[in-house]
Structure formats: structure tokens, C-alpha cells
Amino acid sequence: MALLIGALLLGFAAARLRLLPEAWRGKVPALGNLTLFALLFSLGLSLGSNQEIIAALPALGLRAVVLSVGTVLGSVLLVWLASGLGGRRP
């Protein structure tokens, strides 16, 4: 968690204090996208190589899908209702 917060603050400071050479500034979003793809690829690799997960899918997969849909719907609905109460956003 400290690594993540540190990286976020460093990125913020680098932009505010103009620490990066002018030519690099425009390339940061592309770096972000590339690392996101790399991250999801490596997440996929570790999931695909995990025998425990693959073996559990047939028995527990459907139930896990239903529960995950429940968590997403429940959390989205509560925040949506609350943001209606707290003044709708533009």
C-alpha cells in the first residue's frame, strides 16, 4: 500500500514540479495503458497457472459469478441512491 501511495504522489509531484523532460510528458498516459495491459496479462498468467483455481471452477464457478454480480449491483445501487440524495452530479 505504501508503494502505491508513494508512486501516486511521485507521479503527482512530477507533473506539478515539471520534473520530466518536455518530450516525455505526453507519453505518460501511454505508459499507464501499457502497464495496465501488462498487469492484467500477468494476473491472467497467475490465474491460468493456478491449479487450485482451475480445479474449483466447474463446482464453484457459477455460484461465484452470481455472488460477484450481487456485490457489484448492491454497491452500485447504494452509491447511486446516495448520490441522488446528496445532490445529483452533472
Binding site: L4, A7, L8, G11, F12, A14, P29, T35
Partner: peptide, 12 residues
């Protein structure tokens, strides 16, 4: 990769 990702978000 997570650190680079957070750096990019912080930067933007």
C-alpha cells in the same frame, strides 16, 4: 507494474 500505473494516474 502497479507502481508505474499509479505513477501515471498521479501524473495525469
Amino acid at each position: 507494474a502497479l507502481a508505474a500505473l499509479l505513477f501515471a494516474v498521479g501524473f495525469s
